[in-house]
Computed example of a mutant assay.
Amino acid sequence: MIMGVSDAMESSAERESVMKLLMEGFCQGVRTAGSTVSGGQTILNPSPIIGGVASAVIDRESLVRNDSIQDGDYLVLTKPLGTDMAVRRYTQLHGSTSMPEDIAEIREAYDLAVRSMAHLNLAAGSLLRKHCSTGATDITGFGLLGHAENLASVQLTSVALRFFVLPCICGTTYRGTPTAGSWNVKLLSGRGVETSGGLLAAFRTLKEADAYIADIRRIGGTESWVVGRGVEKCDALALIKTLPGDESLIHGRYNSSRIHTIAIEEISTSTTPQASKEDTICVLEVSASDLFLRENIESEETCRYNQEELAKRLM
């Protein structure tokens, strides 16, 4: 564990209380993941920070190959996008002399982003092998497209990854309203930075993708989404583009009132080299109740239940 103790806090009592809670939360998260904390370093820092380095040992047979995605495979995303935007908009409130009209939505987005970042990818990662994933990656600092490009580049066959819907935290895709505001171009072009994002996993069939999602719901208590497919390689390794044939799948699975269809030219033609005026992308707004399907899923009792369920299903 590496911990930065804030020297900007007003009193030693406040500093001691806050850092104690940070350490307790960190250790609880490590226990939930089935590991332990050993050793550490503490420094003084203007802002409180906490982190660490994790190491794992695993036998070769338990590894999930990352290079077998093919044209036609289905892509699943296990956490919504938009953590960076949610946190940025919330932190901009500090020191502001006037509050924006959508302040309630900003706070709701921030709360959801924090809960999403704090939720481990334990179930999502552990179930990849059971459901025969053909490739997977986490979605963090390079954004959705950046990590998808890296994943596509290591495949044994010539394939690109095309996304037809982007699940995003409510209130992060635009400023104002979807009809009278400005779109968040970086996020919707797939380049938005994510912190502690979900997994992007590929499966050969829609049935396998759905079985994976169902197991995550059962064990992890959270929602996941089919967001795209492997396609024949084009000028891009990864692209965002909704085709007419995707509409029935999207609206058949997700709440239509939460779906926005946006012309790609309104966002950025850089999302795909073949972008034209007719090309669109679909955005799915995700609320807390959409993502977290059970109450108190972060409790230690629920985490123990999750680990027991995983052990049974992976036997």
Rank of each mutant, 00 (worst) to 15 (best):
A211M: 08
Y212C: 01
Y212S: 02
I213G: 03
I213L: 09
D215R: 06
R218V: 05
G220W: 06
T222A: 01
T222W: 03
E223C: 05
S224L: 00
W225E: 05
V227C: 06
G228W: 01
G228V: 07
G228H: 00
R229K: 07
R229Q: 13
G230C: 07
V231M: 08
E232P: 08
K233N: 03
K233Y: 09
D235N: 09
A236I: 02
L237I: 03
L239F: 09
I240F: 08
T242R: 15
L243G: 08
G245W: 07
D246K: 08
E247S: 11
S248D: 14
L249G: 05
L249H: 11
Y254A: 09
Y254D: 11
N255M: 09
S257R: 11
I259L: 04
I259W: 03
T261G: 04
I262W: 09
I262G: 04
I262D: 02
A263T: 12
E265R: 15
E266N: 15
E266T: 08
I267Q: 05
S268M: 07
T269A: 14
P273Y: 15
A275M: 10
A275H: 12
T280E: 14
I281E: 04
I281W: 05
V286A: 01
V286I: 12
S289V: 11
S289D: 11
S289P: 09
L291W: 13
L291P: 09
F292C: 12
F292E: 08
F292Q: 01
F292P: 11
F292M: 12
L293H: 09
L293R: 06
R294T: 13
R294K: 14
E295N: 12
E298A: 11
E298D: 13
E298Y: 06
E300Q: 06
E300F: 03
N306T: 12
N306W: 13
Q307H: 13
L310N: 00
